[in-house]
């Protein structure tokens, strides 16, 4: 499943007006249309529709908004309008026309992730 296709029943959601500061971890998927300041470690996918500041580690990451921080992911997609500022370690990377990545991309790395990560 790519980060574009988050279909889990219980997708976590941070609404546009909400701010979360701290560490978010778990095995679910999360969509952030608000602000998340801190670290994110998810077994599932993270969709950044709003703003995320901090290191992110997830199985899949999709950036539609703005993400500032290092990303470690099985798959990263920066969609049109998305902006990523930070270094990337991922096995698959997609950058749409209109999206941007500012930072170092490293794809040749053994990921500190669990199952569901190898492709």
């Amino acid at each position: 499943m790519s980060a574009r296709e988050v279909t889990s029943d219980a997708v976590g959601y941070v609404g546009p007006g909400l701010v979360v500061r701290g560490r978010v971890s778990g095995d679910g998927d999360l969509r952030c249309d608000g602000t998340l300041e801190g670290s994110v470690a998810l077994e599932g996918a993270l969709v950044v529709g709003g703003r995320v500041v901090g290191p992110v580690r997830a199985r899949a990451v999709a950036v539609e908004g703005r993400l500032e921080g290092a990303v470690t992911a099985g798959e990263l997609n920066v969609l049109a309008g998305g902006r990523l500022v930070g270094d990337v370690r991922a096995t698959r990377i997609g950058l749409d026309d209109g999206g941007s990545i500012q930072g170092t991309v490293d794809m040749d790395v053994d990921l500190p992730l669990g199952e569901g990560d190898a492709r």
Binding site: G15, L18, V19
Partner: peptide, 27 residues
Amino acid sequence: KQKPSLIPAGVRVDGEIEGEGDLIVAG
């Protein structure tokens, strides 16, 4: 009418949450 925010079961937040809208915590 805005979609409520959700911290689903299986997700843990160590930190603070504040802001506008509704929030459902299942985690």
